[in-house]
Every structure is written in C-alpha cells, then in structure tokens.
Design a protein around this nucleic acid. Sequence first.
DNA 1: CCTAGTGTATTACCTGCTTAGTACACATGG
DNA 2: CCATGTGTACTAAGCAGGTAATACACTAGG
Lengths: 126, 126
Amino acid sequence: MSVTFNKRDPIYLQVMTHLKKQIVSGELKPGVEMPSRRQLANQLKINPNTVQRAYSEMEEQRLIFTEPNKPSRISEDPNVLNQLKKEWLNQAITRFVSAIDPIDMDLEDLMPMIEQELANRKKAQK
Amino acid sequence: MSVTFNKRDPIYLQVMTHLKKQIVSGELKPGVEMPSRRQLANQLKINPNTVQRAYSEMEEQRLIFTEPNKPSRISEDPNVLNQLKKEWLNQAITRFVSAIDPIDMDLEDLMPMIEQELANRKKAQK
DNA sequence: CCTAGTGTATTACCTGCTTAGTACACATGG
DNA sequence: CCATGTGTACTAAGCAGGTAATACACTAGG
C-alpha cells in the first residue's frame, strides 16, 4: 500500500479516503485484518497517532471493528458496506454534475472524454 | 450572489471556485466589473481580506485584472478564458473517473444516474 | 476641500493538524 | 515468565495556514 499525499487535505482524511476506496473496490474484503496502527504509520512515514485518528473515525462509521488487543478488521455488515458504496457513488455523481453543470456541453460529447480517461487509467495501472 | 460555505475548505478557495464557475458558465462576462472587496465581503458575511486573497490569486492567474483604484474586472483575454474552461472540464472528468474507477459498474449504467441528477438540478434551480 | 469608496500592505491572532513522548492493559509466542 | 506486539489514552509542543484588524495611498463626486 502506498499513497501520495497532497498538502491541502489533512493526512488522516486522505488515509480514510484511500482505505474506503479499497473497500469499495473489493481490494479490502469484509473480515480481513487491517495493518496495525504502528505498521501502517511506519509504511506511510507518518505518525501512529494520525493513523489512529483515521482508524477510530472509520470505526465510528462502522467500517471497521476492533476486538480488544487484536488488529482491526473490515466490517462484515452488508448494510454498512452497501451504504458506503452507495454514498461513494452518489458523491462521485453529485460532484461531477455540479462541476459539469455550468459548462455548455451535452452529455453525449462528454462520454468519449470519460472513456478516454478511463482507458488512460487502465494503461497506467500496469 | 450567495454561496454556502463548507467548514473544511478555506473560504478564499471556495470564493475562487464560485467565481470561476460563474466565469465558465458565462454568468460573469469578459470585461465586466467585479463587486468591490468590501462589497462582496459584506454580502458573504466574511472578512474583506479573505475576498482580497481570492481576488489577488485570481489576478495572478490572469482571470481578473485591476487598474489602480478601480474595481477589478473579468479578463478579456480569450486564451485565458479558454484555458480556464479547459482546465475546469479536465478536472471534472479526472476527478469523476478517479472516483468511479474502483466501482464495479459499467459506464452505461451510470449514464441514467447522471442524467437524473442533472434533471434534479434544473428543477431545483427555479 | 473633504468624505466615501476604490485597491493594497502589514501585522497579529487563532485554530486545526501533526508529531512526539509516554503510559497502560492485555494477549501471544518463545 | 517475559519480550513483543496488539489497541487505547493523554499531554505537550510546534507549525502552518487562514482569518481578522488596522492603516495607507489614491480617486471621484458632492
């Protein structure tokens, strides 16, 4: 796992977003163990407290759960996971439409640009 | 002009985004006078310095220009304006694709949701 | 002339984020 | 039994960025 942080947003939020993305994509499956706070902090070159903040907020959102003295794990509750995907998708669309709205272009003309960008991503992935 | 600010992002950035949006949409036409720093600040219930910061950054980006002791005005340079639209569109698509990428859905299935959201916006606009 | 309105500049304050340093309870493996 | 690794909690410090208060130079209009 590697993340490139921007300077604007708080690190703990970027970590959360990164993890949520992995949950949505299925990279992080329900029930799977998360890296420990200290491990992840070491890996990302950040402070363990910052990871802790990300984790504890995700725990509040029921996305992960922690049994005493054991590594945190991804939630297995289908409701929670579906809700996450739902909100993730919803936010993506809302933001996109909000950005696209002031532009004088039809949706049909945007499609090819989106497909182009999707293709670029797959290319860069390998 | 009215804006609803979120608490996370700096106000001056939100003001910039708001103004850029208006430029992109054509609400703010080239050469038109901007509201004065104090006026806009008063209207948005924020500090004049915050507006000043937004304005001066937009001036650096050549989106507005200011003759001494006169209200700032929207740029009339077609290159600058086209560049803005280009970047705006580009960013919208990049962000959207980045958000949509981890989701296991085809573009065809997303289209109706986008159109739905677009319709909602027009409805709420009036 | 002088008041009110421009833009501009400087300074100080304040909040939030990050880091660091400890400390504690508990479980596990050697 | 003990060393190590979990999660958790608390405090302190510092840093950076955003915001606010104030003052200044200039212009236009009454």
